[in-house]
Simulated assay, not measured.
Amino acid sequence: MKHLILFAHPNPKSFNTAILKTTVKVLEGKGHQVTVRNLYEMHFDPVLKGTDFEVFHSGKKPPDVEQEHDLIAAADGITMIYPIWWSGMPALLKGYIDRVFSYGFAYRYNDEGVPVGMLSGKKGLIINTLGSTTEYYDSIGMTEAVKKTTDTSIFGFCGMEPVGHLFFGAVPAVDDATRQGMQKTLTEKLDGLF
């Protein structure tokens, strides 16, 4: 299986980086091919410009977007790893989605104006860290809101099968033993999914 990981955290010493390393290790250990797109290291340009629309409408693609399209097209599974900031994803990842999960590649509309996902056959997994506890996020309805805006409104909208969404809460406050437990949960989830 070919996996594409979209990683969005600016700190190479973050727990998100530890999650990334574990994810790569588990998947490669199972014989899967893994490609990581570290959006901060890549200095990916997240700004959707008017010129991007002009290029798309001409039937072409900006070169940086075309490279990402090739990687997505080749992937069987797409995993996003990022922290939840202000109840959403980092702006860099949102900009990546704006530019790369584009009309005519990730989705289109049929003659009745109904969206049609074009990335069917791919599995999608999301792994998030939170500053708050998961219990707090659950109690205010934010867990379900985040799932709606990502699992349903990105993966599902584009025709992908959302296969899981992991939330690791209170990451800045927990101790190393708790983080190790989170890594164990991650490993077990990856083993079960892939």
Rank of each mutant, 00 (worst) to 15 (best):
L4G: 09
S120T: 14
I126Y: 11
I127G: 05
G113Q: 13
E144H: 14
P62W: 11
K2W: 06
L93E: 08
P62S: 03
L20Y: 07
G192P: 04
Y103C: 08
Q180Y: 03
M118Y: 10
I72W: 10
T17N: 14
V171N: 08
F44P: 02
F53C: 00
A170N: 12
T22C: 11
I78D: 03
V114T: 14
E112G: 00
K123C: 01
F155P: 00
A8P: 02
K122E: 05
F101D: 10
G31S: 05
F105P: 10
Q180C: 01
G121V: 05
H3A: 13
S153H: 14
T51V: 15
T22F: 00
Q180A: 12
I81R: 03
V55W: 09
R99D: 09
K189T: 15
T149L: 11
E66G: 01
H69S: 02
G164L: 09
K122G: 03
P172V: 02
K30S: 07
I5M: 06
D76Y: 11
G59Q: 03
G95Y: 12
M142T: 09
R99W: 12
G77Y: 11
A170R: 01
R37I: 09
M1V: 10
I72K: 11
V34M: 07
A106E: 07
H32Y: 03
A73R: 15
T187V: 13
F168P: 01
V116L: 13
D45F: 04
E54Q: 12
K30V: 00
S58F: 03
G169W: 12
G88D: 13
L39W: 12
V24R: 06
K21T: 08
V55Y: 07
G77E: 13
G181E: 03
G29F: 06
G159Q: 01
V47T: 11
H165S: 14
L119K: 09
T23S: 15
E41T: 01
R99M: 09
F56R: 08
A170M: 05
T129K: 11
V114Q: 13
I84W: 12
Y109Q: 02
M80L: 15
A73Q: 15
I81A: 02
P162N: 08
S102Y: 12
L166R: 11
D45K: 10
T129E: 04
P172S: 06
S14M: 05
V171F: 09
G104P: 10
E188V: 08
D52G: 12
F53M: 14
Y96V: 03
E66Y: 12
H57T: 13
L190C: 02
G59T: 04
T143Y: 00
L186C: 09
G117R: 13
I154V: 15
G95D: 08
I127S: 06
K2A: 07
K21Q: 14
V47W: 08
D138H: 14
T17R: 15
A177Y: 02
H9I: 02
A177T: 01
Y109I: 03
I78W: 06
P63V: 08
R99H: 09
S14F: 07
E135P: 00
V34L: 02
A73I: 02
G121Q: 05
I5T: 04
